[in-house]
Deep mutational scan, measured.
Amino acid sequence: DTINITLPDGKTLTLTVTPEFTVKELAEEIARRLGLSPEDIKDTHNGKTLDPSLTLAEYGITPGSTITLEIK
């Protein structure tokens, strides 16, 4: 299953994830792909900052969802 990550420059990154991924694991994968530190990444969905300890499923993030990435 894939989700879309909207980057600060407007580009989109597509990642393969499972509903059990935590937001922290997602940030780590994004950081790895972009050459950043996971601590520099802030993920938001529907205007809410995502708690790193919760899973994508707990936020109702499903395949095809879009998450907005902010760099701290």
Results as ranks from 00 to 15, higher is better:
Tyr59Ile: 15
Pro19Gly: 02
Ile3Cys: 02
Ser65Cys: 14
Ala27Val: 15
Leu69Thr: 03
Thr6Asp: 07
Thr12Asp: 04
Ile71Asp: 04
Thr66Tyr: 04
Leu13Ile: 13
Gly60Tyr: 02
Gly47Gln: 06
Asn4Met: 09
Ala27His: 15
Lys24Tyr: 08
Ile3Glu: 03
Val23Ser: 01
Thr6Glu: 13
Lys11Tyr: 13
Thr66Asp: 04
Leu13Phe: 12
Leu56Gln: 00
Asp40Phe: 14
Ile67Trp: 03
Ile71Thr: 07
Ser53Lys: 11
Thr14Gln: 11
Tyr59Glu: 08
Thr18Gln: 05
Glu70Lys: 06
Thr66His: 06
Lys11Ile: 11
Ile5Phe: 03
Leu36Cys: 14
Thr66Gln: 04
Leu69Ile: 15
Ser53Thr: 11
Asp51Trp: 05
Ser65Ala: 10
Asp40Arg: 12
Pro63Cys: 06
Ala31Met: 08
Asp51Thr: 05
Ile61Val: 08
Thr18Trp: 13
Glu70Val: 12
Gly35Arg: 04
Lys48Arg: 13
Ser37Ile: 09
Gly10Ser: 03
Gly60Leu: 03
Lys42Arg: 13
Phe21Ile: 09
Thr14Trp: 06
Gly35Tyr: 03
Thr49Phe: 12
Gly10Arg: 03
Leu36Tyr: 09
Tyr59Asp: 02
Ile71Lys: 05
Lys42Ser: 13
Tyr59Gln: 15
Gly10Pro: 01
Pro52Lys: 10
Thr68Phe: 14
Glu58Ala: 05
Val17Ile: 13
Val23Met: 11
Glu28Trp: 09
Glu28Gly: 06
Leu54Arg: 14
Leu26Gln: 00
Leu15Met: 09
Leu26Phe: 08
Thr12Tyr: 09
Pro63Met: 09
Thr68Tyr: 14
Asp43Cys: 15
Lys72Arg: 12
Glu20Leu: 10
Glu28Met: 12
Leu50His: 03
Asp9Gly: 13
Glu20Asn: 11
Ser53Tyr: 08
Lys48Cys: 12
Glu29Gly: 04
Glu28Cys: 11
Pro8Lys: 09
Leu13Lys: 01
Thr12Pro: 02
Thr55Ala: 03
Thr68Leu: 13
Leu36Gln: 06
Lys72Trp: 13
Pro52Leu: 13
Ser65Gln: 07
Thr22Cys: 01
Lys48Ile: 13
Asn4His: 11
Thr49Gly: 07
Val17Glu: 00
Val23Ala: 02
Thr2Ser: 09
Leu56Val: 02
Asn46Leu: 12
Glu58Ile: 02
Glu58Val: 01
Asn46Arg: 08
Ile5Glu: 02
Ser53Ala: 09
Leu56Pro: 00
Asn46Trp: 14
Glu20Gly: 07
Lys11Asp: 10
Thr22Ser: 04
Leu54Pro: 03
Gly47Tyr: 04
Asp9Tyr: 07
Lys42Cys: 15
Val23Phe: 14
Leu56Trp: 01
Asp51Ile: 06
Glu58Phe: 06
Val23Cys: 08
Gly35Lys: 06
Thr62Pro: 06
Thr6Cys: 14
Asp9Glu: 05
Glu20Ser: 12
Glu28Val: 09
Ala31Glu: 04
Thr66Leu: 04
Asp1Thr: 14
Val17Cys: 05
Thr44Tyr: 12
Glu70Cys: 12
Leu26Pro: 00
Thr6Asn: 14
Gly35Asn: 09
Leu34Thr: 12
Ile5Val: 13
Pro38Val: 15
Gly64Tyr: 01
Ile30Met: 05
Phe21Arg: 04
Pro38Glu: 08
Gly10Lys: 05
Ser53Asn: 13
Thr14Glu: 10
Lys24Gly: 14
Asn4Ala: 08
Asn46Lys: 09
Thr16Asp: 10
Pro8Asn: 09
Asn46Gly: 10
Arg32Pro: 01
Thr18Phe: 08
Ile67Asn: 01
Lys48Phe: 07
Ala27Cys: 14
Gly47Ala: 05
Thr55Gln: 02
Lys24Cys: 08
Lys24Asp: 02
Asp40Trp: 15
Asp1Asn: 14
Leu34Val: 07
Gly10Asp: 03
Leu56Met: 02
Pro8Asp: 06
Thr66Ala: 03
Thr49Leu: 11
Thr16Asn: 12
Leu13Ser: 02
Glu28Ile: 10
Gly60Glu: 04
Leu15Asp: 00
Leu15Asn: 00
Ala57Phe: 12
Glu28Phe: 09
Ser53Ile: 04
Glu25Arg: 08
Thr14Gly: 04
Leu69Tyr: 01
Gly35Trp: 03
Glu20Phe: 08
Asp51Ser: 05
Thr6Phe: 12
Pro19Thr: 04
Thr14Val: 14
Thr66Phe: 06
Leu36Met: 12
Pro52Phe: 12
Lys42Leu: 15
Lys72Met: 13
Thr2Phe: 13
Glu25Cys: 06
Thr6Pro: 01
Ala57His: 08
Ile41Ser: 02
Thr55Arg: 06
Thr18Ala: 06
Thr12Gln: 09
Thr55Tyr: 02
Lys48Trp: 05
Thr44Pro: 14
Leu69Lys: 00
His45Ala: 13
Leu54Met: 15
Ile67Arg: 00
His45Ile: 14
His45Lys: 12
Gly10Thr: 03
Thr16Gly: 07
Leu15Lys: 00
Ser37Arg: 10
Ile3Gln: 03
His45Asn: 10
Ser65Asp: 10
Pro63Gln: 05
Glu58Ser: 06
Ser53Cys: 10
Thr66Asn: 10
Thr44Ala: 13
Arg33Cys: 09
Asp51Pro: 05
Ala27Phe: 15
Asp1Tyr: 15
Thr18Lys: 06
Pro63Leu: 05
Pro52Asn: 12
Asn4Gly: 06
Pro8Met: 09
Ile71Leu: 11
Pro8Ile: 08
Ile71Glu: 05
Ile30Gly: 00
Ala27Leu: 15
Thr12Arg: 09
Arg32Asn: 09
Pro8His: 08
Thr12Ala: 06
Thr66Lys: 06
Gly60Ala: 02
Gly47Val: 06
Thr2Met: 07
Gly60Phe: 03
Gly10Asn: 05
Thr14Pro: 04
Glu28Asp: 10
Glu29Arg: 04
Leu15Glu: 00
Lys42Asp: 07
Lys11Pro: 07
Lys72Thr: 13
Ala57Leu: 14
Thr62Asn: 07
Leu15Gln: 02
Leu36Arg: 10
Thr49Asp: 08
Leu15Trp: 02
Thr68Val: 14
Ile67Lys: 00
Pro38Met: 12
Ala27Thr: 13
Gly47His: 07
Ile41Asn: 02
Gly35Met: 04
Tyr59Leu: 15
Pro38Trp: 14
Asp43Ser: 15
Asn4Lys: 10
Ile5Lys: 09
Gly60Ser: 02
Lys11Ser: 12
Glu29Met: 08
Ile71His: 07
Thr18Met: 05
Thr6Gln: 14
Gly10His: 04
Gly64Asp: 03
Glu28Ala: 10
Glu58Met: 03
Ile71Gln: 05
Thr6His: 14
Thr18His: 12
Asp9Val: 02
Arg32Gln: 08
Thr68His: 14
Leu54Asp: 04
Lys48Glu: 09
Glu29Asp: 03
Pro38Asn: 07
Gly10Gln: 03
Leu54Ile: 08
Thr62Ser: 08
Ser37Asn: 13
Arg32Tyr: 06
Tyr59Trp: 08
Ile61Ala: 02
Leu13Arg: 01
Ile67Ala: 01
Leu69Asp: 00
Arg32Ser: 09
Leu54Cys: 11
Ile5Leu: 04
Leu56Asn: 00
Val23Tyr: 06
Ile3Ser: 03
Gly64Ser: 02
Val17Ala: 02
Asp43Met: 15
Val17Gly: 00
Asp1Ser: 13
Arg33Phe: 13
Leu7Arg: 03
Ser53Arg: 11
Ala31Ile: 06
Ser37Trp: 09
Asp43Arg: 14
Thr18Cys: 05
Thr14Ile: 12
Leu13Tyr: 07
Phe21Cys: 12
Ala57Glu: 11
Asp51Leu: 05
Gly47Glu: 06
Phe21Asn: 06
Thr2Tyr: 12
Thr55Val: 03
Ile3Gly: 02
Thr55Cys: 03
Lys48Met: 13
Leu7Cys: 09
Ile67Ser: 00
Glu70Asp: 10
Ile67Gln: 01
Leu56Phe: 01
